[in-house]
Amino acid sequence: MATVRLFGGLRRRARDPKISVDGVTARDVLASLCRDNPGLHAVIWDGARVRDHVRGLIGGQAIELGRGLATRVTADDEIAIFPPIGSGGNTT
């Protein structure tokens, strides 16, 4: 199980700022995170894409500059999700 850490206003929408989530890819992890915490869905997803202003990092590196949502996730990984503190890049 990978660890997801939520920041800023996302914390109000989830049961805990730090959550263990199953998933093989970044996409799986985000999907299952939002299933367990439905309040997050609308602020993270825009259809099948991650919203423009949501920032995702695995091990401190921007997901979108790597393999995007297809990035494979291991149990040791920490995935950080930041709400709009700016942003805009497409995490596709």
């Binding site: 920041f7 800023g8 206003g9 990092l57 950080a80 709400p83 709009p84 503190i85 700016g86």
Partner: peptide
Amino acid sequence: SPLTSQALPEFGTAVVLNIVNHIG
């Protein structure tokens, strides 16, 4: 803008501390 309408009013400039720390 989510920055000027949400992030800055809610958390002030310190909103960036966690992400700057997170990326090293």
